[in-house]
Each structure stands twice: as C-alpha cells, then as structure tokens.
Write a protein that binds this DNA or RNA. Structure first.
Lengths: 177, 177
DNA sequence: TGTACATCAGTGAACGCGCGTTCACTGATGTAC
DNA sequence: TGTACATCAGTGAACGCGCGTTCACTGATGTAC
C-alpha cells in the first residue's frame, strides 16, 4: 500500500468524495459497472479496503453515489446551457452523454425501482430544465427527452449504424415542438 | 448434481440451446447481467460447469448468444405485427421491451464495438421491418426508432415518472412521420 | 446375431484468484488541565 | 507552556466463498465386422 497523507480531524468526510472519484474513474476507464468492486475502488483511492466502510455500508451504495453525482453533473451542464435556449440545452445533453458514456449509461440504464412519485432529486432537476425551456410544456419536454435519450444511448451502443449527423438529428427532434 | 438425461449422439448441440435458455432465465429472474456466471448457468442447466466449454469458449460468448437470440425474438415479433402496419409494429416493439425488460436492456445497453458497417444481422433485420413500414424512408424510421427506444428504456428505468399513457405517446411519436 | 471398439456427451476434483467483510490494532491529531 | 489522554482516520491480517478454468476420467451410444 502506497503512502497516503491522511485527512485531518473533522475532514474524514473528504475520503468519501475521493471514493466516489475513484469509483467513477474505474467506471469510465473500464466501461463496466461490475468493475466497481469495493477492493478495486480502495486500490484506486490508495486506501485499505476496510476504510471504505466508514463512508459506505456496501458496494451498492458506492454505485448509487456515482449515479447521483452523474445526475448532478448533468443538471449543472444543462443549467449552464439554459440561457442559450432549448436547442443549446439539447446540445448540452447530447454532449454530456457523448463525453461520459459509461456514467450516462449506468445512470439511465439501471432500473430505479423507487416508490411511486419518488424520482431522484437530481434527475428531476435536470428534467425541469428541459420543461422550462419548453415554456412549461411537460408533454413536449417528455417527447424531446425520450428522443434525446434514444439517440444518445443508441448512438453509443451502435456506433456503426449510419446515424444522420447531429444538427440534422436535433432539428428533426425539435420539430416535434 | 441432479439427474439429467444426456443427449443422444449427434444431438450434443441441443445443450447449447439449453445453456442459452438457462442464461436467459437467470438474466430475466435476477435482472442482473453479471448474475450470468458460467457456474450459475451450468447449475441452472443442470449440468457440470466444464460441460459448457464444449459449446462456448467463455462467459462472454454466452451473453453474446443471449443478446443475439433476443434480437432474433424482437425481429420475429415485429415480423408478426408487420401486416398491421406501422403503429402495430411500434406496439409490438414496446410490448417486447415491456415484457422482456432485462433482455431488452442488455441487448440495447451494451456497447457493441463492431467494425464500421458491421451491425449485428438480427438487429439490422428488426430495423429493416421498421424501414419497410415507413415506406422505405430510413430517416423517418430512425427517428421513430430512437423515440421508441427512448420511451421503452426510460419507462423501464424510471417507472415512477408520470408517463403519458401509451396510445397518446405512440400518436405523438408517429406524428413525426 | 453377437461382440469388440471408437466416439462422444458429460463428470468430479482440484487449482489459484479476487472478492466482501470482520477483527483487533495503530498512530497522528487535537484537547483538557 | 507542557503533558496526559481521548478521539478519530485509517491499517493489516485473516476468514470463507464463488468464480473461471484445467485435467484426467467415465460410461452410454452407436458402428464395424
């Protein structure tokens, strides 16, 4: 085990973030959700395996934290693009999916069996950005969302498919408005 | 190991199908792709683990076979619905995704890094059914496909989201034509 | 028709490995007096 | 200011487990003569 300067008192929580960093790095490098193992994450974070237990009760909680952070990042991306209008938000959405393909896939690919009405807060926030850009029309925002998601995830899954170029795609998607 | 009547001579290939059955059953019951382990599949198929090697070189090849079969089933579903026209095909697509959620997710969620132009034959066949129903218009078929996939996969992933009902959704999706 | 034999489908034991988790612990950091 | 001590972040060794894979094998099935 390599040297690691340990956190000062009261800053133990910092390791929590480093663990999520480590898990995210593993996911994005290997492309595989099951490569996120407790021991692997510990190695990546330069920490002994049992140290994780101070911050997460099990492996699953680490993955959930990775997903929550990814949704937060997506929301931030969309927020930044909001002033550019609906098309800019859609561009930002597609950029996010293209640049962080594995985080995107895990975040939207897992089946979130949450109790009715309880969608994750971060995900809801991101969707609300879309609704706002659609002048509050949820129906339109939903249609655009499913098209964006369908395009983003299929383009990542089947790159060999002869996809239309992105501007044409976006124009067609937005024609639904 | 429980009793198992072994296949007659020349029918050894039958076990291959039983292995894919077993792997598919595990996937659909657990909902987890990594629950498809070589030993687990062997147990489910009532066979000793090394018996698998006569038919598959490794675990990955089993998963690939599960995916290939799923695409074949999807194609068959769409073919059956074809005479009912475009809307019927879309209904069949959504039914398939709703009834076999985990197969659908694994089939379309994996990143198929195939050499350019080499999309899986089964997947291509299914897409062609959609193109045919769109009077040969690939652009339209592509748009409908991404909407169907977006809806199917997001509805499975986030069931708590207030989705419009399916007929309304389909009508909106098909309005793109 | 009988029998020796090759083939073929599948087995059982064994291996080394990485995993999640537990346990008793260490030693630096800050605090009370 | 010095020092004893509690707290807190993190460690190292050990466990049992299921995994993928290998190996030499078994015994039923079909075939040649």
């Amino acid at each position: 085990m390599q040297q690691r300067r340990r956190n000062a008192r009261g800053e133990g929580a910092r390791l929590r973030d480093e663990i999520i960093d480590a898990a995210t790095a593993i996911l994005e490098e290997t492309g595989s959700e099951d490569a996120i193992t407790l021991r692997g994450v510990a190695r990546q974070a330069n920490v002994a395996a049992p140290s994780i237990y101070a911050h997460f009760t099990d492996r699953e909680e680490i993955v959930a934290a990775v997903v929550a952070r990814a949704f937060g990042e997506l929301d931030a991306s969309l927020a930044e693009a909001a002033e550019g209008g609906l098309r800019a938000i859609c561009e930002a959405y597609l950029d996010f999916a293209a640049e962080r393909p594995h985080r995107y896939r895990v975040a939207f690919g897992r089946h979130h069996n949450l109790p009715a009405g309880e969608v994750s807060a971060e995900g809801q926030a991101a969707f609300t950005r879309l609704v706002d850009a659609c002048a509050g029309n949820r129906q339109t925002a939903t249609l655009i969302w499913i098209s964006l998601h369908g395009y983003a995830s299929l383009a990542a899954a089947v790159p060999a498919f002869p996809w239309p170029d992105r501007p044409a795609m976006l124009t067609a998607i937005l024609a639904q408005t």
